[in-house]
Every structure is written in C-alpha cells, then in structure tokens.
Design a protein around this nucleic acid. Sequence first.
DNA 1: TCTGGGGTCCTGCGGCTG
DNA 2: TCTGCAGCCGCAGGACCC
Length: 406
Amino acid sequence: MTGDRVPGRTRDDTGCHILHVDMDAFYVGVEIRDRPELTGVPVIVGAASGRSVVLSASYQARAFGVRSAMPMMRARRLCPQAVIIPPTHGLYAAVSREVMAVFRSVTPEVEPLALDEAFLDISGALRRLGPPAQIGELIRATVRGQQGITCSVGVATCKFIAKLASIHCKPDGLLVIPADGILEFLHPLPVSALWGVGERTGRVLAGLGLRTVADIAHTPPATLERGLGRAAGAHLAALAWGRDDRKVVPGSLEKSIGAEETFASDVADPALIRRELLRLSGRTARGLRAAGCAARTVVVKLRLADFTTITRSRTLPEPTDVAQQVYSTACELYAAAGLDAGARLRLVGVRASGLVPAAAAEAQLAFGDRPASWREAERAVDRIAGRFGTDAVRPAALVDGHPQQS
DNA sequence: TCTGGGGTCCTGCGGCTG
DNA sequence: TCTGCAGCCGCAGGACCC
C-alpha cells in the first residue's frame, strides 16, 4: 500500500491540503459505543422486518459477507447470529453534529457529504496545527476521545484521491497519498474505484475492455465519451489521471428535500396511495420548514410491483412549504401518471426541489391568500410536534378509523 | 438475491421566446 | 407573417452515491 496507516509516517505530505474523513461503520459504531457488550460481535443496524435493507454492518458481520444496502433477509441468512438493532436516526444525527463541530474546530472549510463523512481543506490550519498528517491524527484522536467511535482519514492534494485514500485505510487508519505517488496508487485500482462508476458504467467499460484505472487513463477521451456521454467520459478521463480541481465547498444548501416509503406489501387501492401521499407530503413540508426552505417543484415517484419507476413533476407558480399545496400537487401528478386500474405499487415518494430560502418565498406570498393561512396552521402544528412528538397532531385522514378521503 | 431511503447530477426532448 | 436558430427552462428518466 502507498502511504502510511499509522502515526509517525515518513511519506511526504507537502501540498496535501485536502482531508477526507469517514466514520467507520458509523451507525454500528454509535450503537456499540452505547452498548459496549456488543464489541467484537457481528452487529447489523436495520429494521428487522419487512422489505428492509442493511443500513450498517460491523466488521465482524462483514466477515460473513454482510454489506450495507443488502436485503435484510439475505443478511440474516448469511449471518444468523448477528445482533440486529433498529436504527435510531436522531442519535446518529446528534453524533454527526458533534463530529462536524470537531472538524470545524480545525478549519471552517468543511464540506459534509453525509452524516458520516466530510471533506476538509486544511490550508489555513497548517501553521497553527502542523503538517497534514499530524492534523489528520489530531482529528482521529479527538473524535475517538470525545465520541468513542473511530474514523479513517485520507490525505491528498485533491478530493477524489483523499476519498480513495480513506477507503483504503479503513477501518481506523490514516493514509497519505503524496503528490508524486498518485498514479502509482491510482492506476492498479479497478475501474469501479472511480467516482461515478457503478454497475451500469462498469459494464460499458468492461465492454471496451477496460478493467483498471490505468486502462481508462490510456484510452482516448473521445472513445470514453462515445461510450458514456460527453460529461461522464471527460470526467472519467480526468479522474484516471488524478485530476480533480473541485474545491471544498463549506455547508452548501440542500437541492431537494423529500420522503418516500416502501409498502409492506404492494398496494393497488388509490385511496390508500393518496393517504400515503398525504403523509409523505406532510413529512416533506416539515422538512422544508425545518430547513428554512420553500420549493418550486414537486416530484412524485411511483415504483410499480415489477420495480419499474415512474416520476412526474410540476413546477408551481410560487414556491411553497405548505403540506396542503404539496399534497394537492402530488395527487394531481399521481392522477396524471395514468396508471392502469389495479396497477400495484410497492413504493411512493414525494420530493420538493428547486429550493429557495423561505424568507424569499414569503415575500412573494405576502399578498394574503389561503396558503399563508395554511402555513400559519402548519407552523403551529410544528410547534406542538416539537413539544409532544410528530404523532401528537396529524391530518384527520391519517387517524386510524377515519374514512378515506378521495 | 431481490432489491430502503435520502439525495445529486446528467441527458435528451420539447416548448417557449427573442 | 413565416421560418430558422439559439438559449433557456421544465420535465422525465437513469445512474450513482452513502
């Protein structure tokens, strides 16, 4: 392996100002921290029943072939002795906020990618805290000391290589990829190591006879662009030579907010589907209000029993954060999808995109209309939910035993 | 094997507008 | 008034990531 996984490294980290910090098996790590008797035991976080998948697996469970995103039924067959823990998302979000605060104590240039990982640009911290590898070790020690969980750190000259480095030193490691060692590290890797190469793209590349990153690097960009499209082809050609000039962008605003849910068994009843749309619209609108956003576009996602997925979207005249508006648009989109009578759905989703700050939206909606009064009513519900939980107040149509609305 | 839920980004098409 | 064109935007779908 290129670089060092342990403190006291000898690799030259000059110019390696980008860190990628990735928590190790994050959800499982948090659960084990609070239940130390599970240390060293195969642990899986995920809903135990229904059509759920593995959210996170301990390294002991991974030894049995369990992977995240694997159907839970299969995971249980592979590792029947695993302890299965239902997820506690609120706890993970709270730990994530603490960990991000550790990162921001090192540098304000922190770009979270998910709850459990972030890029850091430490250019401005070098004089205060020392060379990059030393800062990486400081972060690892602080997170372990404060939160009782481990993380891995990739140190490189750009985001893409830093991310690959953190993957390669997992778990509980640190890896520096020096500027003059990038190609030696990168070129033997399989094409799937590149950002943007999943199952489909991997098949196209295999069809071109390309198996390693070096193969891609030595293929004319025009060939890649013919096979993959202009943007993806050019993107892969650049990555294969370690070129990635994307900057670390601190705390960027979300682009969309939504909610979706898979039914326990497929549903054909339009009334039940509309009821689910009502619930998801409420969740989506709450998410918008919590983020201080309003959305211009409502997207409905419908996944049929055979797994084909249909999306329908509509852009509203004015942005909204009101569940009633989201719901009525979602119902119109569902109707407009023109599904056959009796078409069975396994999943429905509602997403709001084209986000703008809510303050800007309110200025447009200040001309006294019904959405304003709906908004006030829903904000009052938010306040009650904040005190008594989200089940304390809900639409009458979602109370068990209430007749279905049509 | 049997596929969650939260997202982002890209492509291609069609309509609108200057 | 019609046509061609470019640019923009909305929309649908797909691929991908964690």
